Amino acid sequence: MTVEVVTPERVLFSGEASMVIARGVQGDLGILPNHMPMVTPLKIAPVRIKTEGDKELVMAVSGGFMEVRGDKVTILAETAERPEDIDPSRAKAAKERAEQRLNEKHPDLDLRRAERALQRAITRLQVTNK
Rank of each mutant, 00 (worst) to 15 (best):
I31L: 09
D110I: 02
L118I: 03
S89L: 05
K43P: 02
E67M: 04
T51V: 11
R101H: 08
R112H: 13
A80C: 06
E16H: 15
A117F: 02
P37Y: 08
G24I: 07
K55L: 10
L29E: 06
A45D: 04
S18V: 12
K55Y: 12
S14R: 15
R10S: 12
P46M: 08
A93L: 14
R10P: 03
A98V: 05
L111K: 14
P37M: 13
Q126D: 04
A117H: 06
G24P: 04
V25W: 05
V5N: 09
R23V: 04
P8Q: 15
A60D: 01
I21D: 07
A80P: 03
P41V: 05
I122F: 01
V61N: 04
I49K: 00
L125H: 01
E104T: 10
G30W: 11
R101E: 03
T74Q: 12
M66F: 10
R82E: 08
G24N: 08
P83S: 13
E4A: 12
K92F: 03
P37H: 14
D71R: 15
K95E: 02
K92Y: 06
I49P: 00
E4T: 14
L32D: 10
E52Q: 13
F65P: 07
D108E: 12
H106G: 10
H106F: 11
D71T: 13
I21Q: 12
R90P: 00
D87C: 10
R69V: 14
V6P: 03
H106C: 07
L29R: 08
Q119H: 10
A91T: 05
E9A: 14
E67S: 04
G24E: 11
A91V: 05
T123H: 01
P37S: 12
P37Q: 14
N129K: 11
R113H: 11
A121T: 02
E96M: 14
D87N: 15
I21C: 12
R69E: 09
V58N: 02
K43W: 07
G30R: 07
A77P: 03
V127R: 00
R116G: 01
R120H: 03
L29Y: 09
P88A: 02
E52D: 13
S62Y: 06
L57R: 04
V39C: 08
K55D: 11
Q119W: 02
I44T: 09
V5S: 14
L102S: 10
L125I: 02
P46F: 05
G53A: 07
R82Y: 10
R112Y: 14
P107G: 06
M19W: 08
Q119R: 13
V39Q: 14
V11M: 11
P33C: 12
I21K: 12
G64C: 07
L42K: 05
E81I: 02
R97L: 06
Q26C: 08
P107W: 04
M59K: 02
H35Y: 14
L76R: 11
D85M: 09
A91S: 08
A98K: 02
A77M: 04
E4R: 11
E67W: 04
A114M: 04
A77W: 04
S62A: 07
E16S: 15
K72V: 15
R112Q: 15
D108G: 05
D110A: 03
I75R: 01
K72E: 14
R124W: 00
D28G: 06
